[in-house]
Design a protein around this nucleic acid. Structure first.
Lengths: 203, 203
DNA sequence: TAATAAAATAAACACTGTTTAGTATATGGG
DNA sequence: CCCATATACTAAACAGTGTTTATTTTATTA
């Protein structure tokens, strides 16, 4: 009697329901309104019920994080049509920082906040981050192969470039750039990209 | 009758007392243990009393932040003995990242956390950050003047370098570098410095 | 000394995330 | 069909948080 399968299906549906509620609260009202009680309210169950489907709030935030990464992946897909690796490298940076500035709370959840990382047993389990990193790494390796970049250590070059991009957007997102007016931010991002490409690539 | 002056002195002493308690809790037990109730406990007053001397918790965290900046300033002082601006630029980066890795919670409070910034009416009031930025900016200007650096826009070069350093340490501090084992971090930081100096400076 | 002004606090408020113990509901066997 | 069992759900509490209010204690001044 395949009622066990239906049970499993129902359980998955409920998990989906909770996640959708959390996602909508996140999108419509922002991170700080994503509370267990508000989620419970939306799905019309008691707060305690949420804990029958997720071990804790961090697990929910972790699942939300995944949605953010899916959006970033989607945006990164256009990179494959760019043949020149140097051009692709620039576009990669542009896409990354554009995503961050247009989806600041998602980016925060993905790359800054502590909470969602606590859902992993060990930081090594964070494959979403590693996959994003791999996109950049493969481009850089190609840049080196084609002689655009003479970096001795691709690992260092890759981490440096990611750090640069993350640094820029996280300084903006957490309001640590009083010397740069808000309306100049996009211009600065382009300036940083120009600067980096000019300094980095072989002339 | 100069009792008004004594009143003011007493008030300042109490503020100092609260701040010292907060600082010690921060150092000895970490950020998450810095709560109004714990502070009140330490100074042997009621939690409500704290609010007679600080408008809210963010104001206390903001004052704590200042202590962090003072330590960073102190470390930056050794830069003045380095005559060569290129060498000074490297040392500046090294000091910054070393401070961050050795005082991760202080760095977090200074450059990552939202809370202490809420104490400012506007982000422009964050002079502590601007001052630190100025140290780097003056070095870069000197590097350009002496022909070490051919950056068109010093503002962009400066923000890029700060972003790079902040990016590196904040990725580590917020556990977003699963691809780099903890024991390799210091080596990576040196690698990033080498890489940056090599790519940036005129050969 | 009594009236006034200042300082300190007890207790509550409005929230968190989370757990426990008890209640409904659905399932499967006789 | 009924009843025991297992599952699903929840009310209420727990242990925290930052913060405010109304009250009491303390100090000052006339």
């Amino acid at each position: 009697m395949g009622s066990a399968e239906r049970k499993e299906r129902d359980k998955q549906e409920m998990r989906e329901m909770i996640l959708t509620a959390a996602k909508n609260l996140f999108i419509r009202e922002g991170f700080e309104h994503v509370t267990i009680r508000r989620i419970a309210e939306v799905i019309e169950y008691s707060p305690a019920t949420v804990y029958l489907y997720f071990t804790d709030k961090d697990a929910i935030l972790c699942a939300l994080q995944e949605l953010g990464f899916r959006e970033l992946y989607k945006r990164q897909q256009v990179l494959s049509v760019i043949k020149d690796p140097a051009e692709r490298l620039r576009a990669c940076g542009k896409i990354y920082m554009e995503f961050a500035m247009e989806n600041q709370e998602w980016y925060d959840l993905m790359f800054i906040m502590r909470a969602p990382m606590k859902a992993f047993d060990t930081p090594e389990d964070w494959n979403l981050g590693r996959d994003t990193y791999e996109v950049l790494r493969s481009i850089i390796v190609e840049c080196i192969d084609q002689g655009y970049l003479k970096a001795r250590d691709p690992q260092i070059a890759c981490f440096a470039l990611w750090s640069l991009m993350h640094g820029v957007v996280s300084i903006f997102i957490r309001d640590r750039a009083p010397m740069i007016p808000k309306e100049h931010r996009n211009h600065v991002i382009d300036g940083i990209l120009d600067f980096t490409m000019a300094e980095l690539l072989e002339k």
